[in-house]
Amino acid sequence: MRFFSSKMRQRQDIALAASLTPMRQALRRLRHNRAAMSALIFLLLLIAVCLAGPWFSSWQLDTTNALQSRQAPSMDHWLGTDFLGRDVLTRLMYAGRISLTVGLISVVLSVALGFVAGALSGYCGGWIDSLIMRVADLLMTIPSLPLLIALGALLSELKIEPEIRIYMVMLMLSLIGWPGLARMVRGQILSLRERDFMLATEVLGLSLRRRLFGHLLPNTVPILLVVATTGVAGAILGEASLSYLGLGVVPPTPSWGNMMDSANSFIDFKRRPWLWMPPGMAIFLTVIAINVLGDGMRDALDPKS
């Protein structure tokens, strides 16, 4: 009897699994991946701290205090103060908001651009394909850091307001990011468009827009998600290196990259690790967490696993 009931339950489980959408099944697999879940929890915590933390801090973002500059961590200033006497922890949390936002938005931009370019290129073929792919090739042949540095220098030359500059940096980073994505999407689309269901959409007389966004996009969502996730890590690193060089997000707007700037001075580097260690660790941990999460998502979304 007991055997029977357990068999029944098993069958119910199977029936349940079968009625889950592919996305839910993937989420379920992801939930069983400890490393990926820890990474996700860490990232959520980090975001929560960056968003809510500054409210609980007794220090302001830009309040300077010449008397308390370069102080070591204490009960008042948990992570010490910088050369203008600003609280490092408070700035770190604000910087986190900026760095994460820049990373996320630039990736959303490059995914959107990359999908449209890749899908048009793969689905339409012909001269559209050649044109888009040659532009992508061209962008990929230019080493990205020098290109970013040149663009950053251009922004400095044009004396763009720091607030607007952040958006420019996002655009620059997505400019670097889309060609790789477009290529990957194109590869996917090339194989998808030969499938019967795409012929069926044509038989049904659906428009190009419906075919691209209604039928092809959902099929590429898994790979887009994985690439976008790891792309966020790349964008955060890109932003950090640019800002470290003073060409990305510029002070007074804090970012993890420009906070690291203090490691430029040998004295600070050697004697005052609280100035550059926190942003360094923040970048390091965030990037690792995102990559672990991305790996976990790849495993969860890969139907062959």
Binding site: R195, D196, F197, A200, V203, L204, G205, P218, N219, V221
Partner: peptide, 24 residues
């Protein structure tokens, strides 16, 4: 042709498993 297809002319295929989009 596109207006005719689906409206006046329709088609079904050999393999129904591959003729339907797996994610919709």
């Amino acid at each position: 042709l596109r207006r005719l297809r689906g409206n006046d002319l329709a088609m079904i295929f050999q393999e129904p498993m591959s003729a339907l989009n797996p994610v919709l």
